[in-house]
Amino acid sequence: MHPVRPYWRALPGTQPEYLHPTYTSTAKRSPTRPLVRMPQTLSEVTGPIFGHDAVGAGPQDDLTKQHAGEPLGERIVVSGRVLDEDGQPVPHTLVEVWQCNAAGRYLHVNDRHDAPIDPNFSGCGRMLTDAEGRYRFVTIKPGAYPWRNHYNAWRPAHIHFSLFGRAFLTRLVTQMYFPGDPLLPADPIFNSTADPMARDRLVSTFDWETTEPEFALGYRFDIVLRGRDATPASA
């Protein structure tokens, strides 16, 4: 017997559904048949321990230091902790981030928004959490930008996050938003999660402790990955 300690299922409303009609791209890309529910096995409760050899070389946790000059925009520090649902830190796990520049333009061939590319900003960072699950990076505040989802549609400023955690089932890709952004109530992606408290947890908080004098404002964004029972299931 190889008992596994299963990871908890999401509380109702705390995760988006696949089909979210106001986000029009979901219409042709969300499954139409019911997902097949199955017990978690060793395959799902293990997962890649990945990226440890990919960080550390170069200023990957400082997106303002990846080119000859400094990028334009408001320099910020983003930090937080990666925890599981028991509040325990998730140490030494890979955090990948990407974002547009201060003008709202991604360095990507498919981004046709008529806003300037910043030759000093690529918008890509990665780091590992420390032993207490903490991460920190320096960047510039991303701009808002239009998209074609609906008339006069604008994405609120956001930074994309990708995290692994301990298992295949703890894998999380999400977006961090900024407090007080007037675009949040109208954004279908932000609003894809039904529970308003779950949405609010995607909004970083301005944080004096992270703010550095004469340098940059600080924002705090804690991330919680799926947790699991303390004892194995009998199955």
Binding site: L11, G87, V173, T174, V224, R226
Partner: peptide
């Protein structure tokens, strides 16, 4: 202590 897992968002 139970902290709900952070909501997923599209890549």
């Amino acid at each position: 202590m139970h902290l709900p897992a952070t909501a997923s968002q599209t890549v």
